[in-house]
Simulated scan of single mutants.
Amino acid sequence: MSNAARSIGLLLFFAALQVFAAPQTFEQAKIEARQFVYYDQTQAGTFYCGCNWQWAGQSGGRVDLKSCGYKTRSQVSRATRTEWEHVVPASNIGRARQCWQKGGRPNCNKTDLVFNAMEADLHNLTPSVGEVNADSANFRFGVLPATPKRHGACDFKVDFKGRVAEPRDEVKGQIARIYFYMHDRYDMRLSRQQQQLLMAWDKRFPISDWERERDKRIASRMGHSNPFVTGERRWTLNHKNTADGIVSKIPTSHPASLVKKAGASTGKIRGNRNSRVYHLPSDCPSYDAIKPKNIIEFSSVAEAQSTRFRKAGNYR
């Protein structure tokens, strides 16, 4: 694919993100994960430990340590709060992008739209006890039969020296299918050893009712499901990635000369993700003043209002 075609594909891809109101930053993703995915799951348990929590602030939570027999290993403040865990670590995502080599995460956030989409992908986010999020770091997954638990009754094991973590059985299958999704969609490499382990977990630990419901909720925001949850795709050894999240296929009925940049006027109702205000394409002086990165487009006023956007007050 030529650079020009790839650029056009990227523009189409991010225009599609705006239509579906998919989060385009990690900060926004955390808020949407609370509002639209996990809003009623505080008694269902955090990802690795199964602890209950109470919401606090826009996207955070306070962990009920007694509910899961959790014991703090070393970080008291992080043990008592939830954090949004990237199941596929953000550093692993970053290393797949050239921007990471030139300044790490801050540089990627400033310069790479694809990295921001990867970092904000709701399919890869789960609520976790903060200390466990820290202890899991960017370690690979494995089986640790001789390693003791370090967090009380929390069934999560970590070998710091070997940089290996083993989660509880209840989430192993979900982890596998999230890994398959992220590596397939964003064209990331997965070692043969990790492929074999995750394929075994995928087979042994089938999709739960909550995993299916979670996928449906996320799809309503992202505009697409995890195909390894819906059954549309299966991972086999040395899987060939689709790279759907890197470029979007260019429709033959839309030549390059007709493709508009994301943020160009489309005649749709336009929301500002910062102010949570929506603007109509006519009679609104601020319609074309919104920064492209802050634009969300809606097909109707009802759709804008259903996501808690309010009408701008500066119409002529």
Rank of each mutant, 00 (worst) to 15 (best):
Y181G: 02
G60E: 05
H123F: 14
A146Q: 14
T147H: 06
G223F: 00
Y38V: 00
K216N: 05
K102G: 09
I178H: 00
A289I: 13
V277M: 05
R212Q: 15
Q43I: 05
A56D: 12
L144C: 08
H279I: 04
K268N: 11
V132H: 00
D159R: 11
D155R: 11
E27R: 11
V114A: 14
G152L: 04
K30I: 03
D283P: 04
M199R: 07
A44H: 12
P148K: 10
F13I: 06
A256S: 14
R276M: 11
T242A: 11
W201I: 08
I246K: 05
Q101W: 09
S306K: 06
G130I: 06
G69T: 10
S265Q: 08
S300K: 10
G142T: 06
L12S: 03
T242D: 07
L12A: 05
K161L: 11
Y278T: 02
R214F: 00
A29P: 05
V164N: 00
A153T: 15
Q193D: 14
V171K: 01
F205D: 00
E27D: 12
I290W: 07
A264F: 04
T230P: 06
R217I: 07
D215I: 05
T307R: 13
R95V: 01
D112P: 03
K110F: 10
S257R: 14
R163W: 08
V158P: 01
T82V: 10
R168N: 13
P227A: 11
E232M: 09
R234K: 13
P281L: 07
S136V: 08
G142A: 12
R163H: 07
V37C: 02
V158K: 02
N274K: 14
S300M: 11
